[in-house]
Design a protein around this nucleic acid. Structure first.
Lengths: 336, 336
DNA sequence: AATGCCTTGTCAATCGATTGCAATATCAAT
DNA sequence: ATTGATATTGCAATCGATTGACAAGGCATT
């Protein structure tokens, strides 16, 4: 009743295991006579044969597996990038490479432990959507054993192939928009500074403000997490400032939602009393009764480029696809 | 510069590979002399030895891997159950079992393809947080080869060990609460009927309404997805009814949020003009300026019991831990 | 008929770790 | 000194698939 191994198939058919292996493979199938090939394939199907990928991995030295590190599984943007990545992993609709997905939650040594697991399982590559400076060392070490690709977040010191969004320009877009709308004093509610994303958004935003002569509230405001709860708390800090801004750039939509709810609790209207912009163009952004002005993340591009990097790196191409940075897009809605 | 294999370690130390294997193992370490054991472990560490789990899997017939099917990676409840599940997979803080996480998005044949992949990779068990009637067959077939555990969603026909929330009672709790608050005509915005969860919530809710003499709007209202967007659309259907209810039970928080935003756009206040209750106690539920009355999902219990089932099943215990259903908890906030 | 090429298939080694069994060493008890 | 028990280590098979080397047969060319 158990499923047969390749050896058993071979016995039943009176051929060698190697013939079975080749007949069933993609690349070596031409080495076996068409009739034999068909015979083998038919028999494999109705015997319910299922190749043992652990054995194949061992022999090939390739596990057809990719380690995916993600900072936060609840974050829509990460998930959507992973989704397009996984979709691009399939060849002709057949999933050949299985992702091992693991979450770091930005905990200091989570990444290095997970990377150890990945390497023990002999992943063919690692894609990190979770890089923080704390993991720099772990990723660097890993990159000596296996291709490492960065997505969404980069690490300047490492020079690893990456698929990114132009976060600086994204921040700049928001700033320009707010300036156009006539705001004179603005404010950022920044995400936690451990990832490059938020730093770049802040830089891009501040640069434009400075260039165009718009002031930011003096004290920089950070959230501990990029969540609505944290955004809500952060609004208190905004109101602690000597001067009250007329617009807030929240570093992502989750923070923006927290900010908006907090404003509502204070009886303030968005955007009349305070304009709010977010980042990512989350699903919720469109659903809110005051639809959110935000920056659409180039999800598909980032995911697909990460997959492209993966394929080019494991194929060992010399003119490998390089790092790329994709442009986000400002989505103007009612909130700012 | 490459990392050494067990064989190379053995040569350097002048002992047999089997000794290395035993010294480094958990369960057979007592078979090797304490000094040898220490010597081996030290050498392993500073040679940077890292066991090859693909080889170990092959030989052991156990991959120390578990297939996790999840319907939706964006759903906080699923993710949180998976998180506690993964945490409970570690023994003494060491991750011994690696989860292979795959998403079905409730697409008809996604589950069976993913299960094929899992089985080819020789997972030790499969945990499905994605079961729909469409996958019944695939899960049943899988359960003949490997332990299959259901979580969150069950399949009555299959009698597989499961870790569940008492969704029926959850629905009932909401109904009782609405009755207590004096509502006479209520309405459900149901989630898609492919999963048991929503059906049970609906049944529990309706039963109590009937028992306590409260009317529901006649036409049942379903959403195509359990998302805010779908919830928003569904509100139109509610207003299409001949009579307007005074309270809405949305089958989860995401739907509830859509409903609330749609109400706001119509200029209606929650809960004064329309009470709204959700399900799951999502993070957002607490953050909203009108905090959401909802049902807290027994996340920890479900995740931990699923892990318990896994451990007991692969240990082959005869008095295996059985299916369990955990009680959710009504969280009364402002919205209803 | 001899030669060479091509097609098809077999043989056997191999990937790296695990484990049942056997072998040796050590020690105590008689 | 002999026996037996116990502790420690080595030997070699094994898990299941893949692949380089090679052999057999067929066919065409000269």
């Amino acid at each position: 009743m158990r499923r047969p191994s390749m050896k058993e198939l071979a016995q039943r058919l009176g051929v060698d295991r190697s013939t079975i292996s080749r007949a069933l493979s993609q690349d070596k199938a031409h080495l076996v006579a068409p009739e034999t090939r068909e015979k083998v394939r038919r028999m494999a199907i109705d015997a319910g044969y299922r190749p043992d990928l652990t054995a194949a991995s061992l022999r090939r030295g390739r596990s057809q597996t990719i380690g995916v590190l993600v900072a936060d599984l609840e974050n829509e943007t990460f998930i959507n990038v992973i989704r397009t990545l996984i979709a691009s992993l399939n060849v002709d609709g057949v999933p050949v490479t299985t992702p091992l997905i693991a979450e770091t939650r930005d905990k200091p040594n989570a990444a290095s432990r997970l990377i150890e697991t990945f390497l023990s399982r002999r992943v063919d590559a690692i894609i990190s959507l979770a890089s923080t400076e704390a993991d720099e060392r772990a990723l660097e070490d890993a990159s000596r054993e296996v291709p490492v690709i960065l997505a969404i977040r980069t690490l300047a010191a490492l020079n690893l192939p990456s698929a990114l969004c132009d976060d600086r320009e994204g921040g700049a877009m928001v700033a320009r928009h707010l300036v156009e709308r006539g705001h004179k004093l603005v404010c950022q509610v920044q995400g936690p500074p451990l990832a490059t994303t938020f730093k770049l958004r802040a830089q891009g935003f501040s640069k434009i403000c400075a260039d165009l002569g718009v002031r930011e509230v003096t004290k920089p405001i950070y959230t501990a997490e990029a969540t609505p709860t944290a955004g809500k708390k952060a609004l208190d800090l905004v109101f602690d400032c000597e001067e009250r801004p007329t617009a807030i750039f929240a570093h992502n939509d989750a923070i923006a939602i927290g900010v908006i709810e907090a404003l509502r609790e204070r009886g303030l209207r968005v955007p009349e009393d305070m304009a709010v912009a977010g980042f990512n163009d989350t699903r919720l952004a469109q659903v809110l009764s005051t639809p959110l002005t935000t920056v659409a993340y180039p999800i598909r591009e980032v995911g697909e480029h990460a997959a492209l990097l993966f394929h080019s790196l494991i194929a060992g191409e010399k003119d490998e696809a390089g790092s790329r940075t994709f442009m986000p897009e400002l989505i103007v809605r009612r909130s700012a």
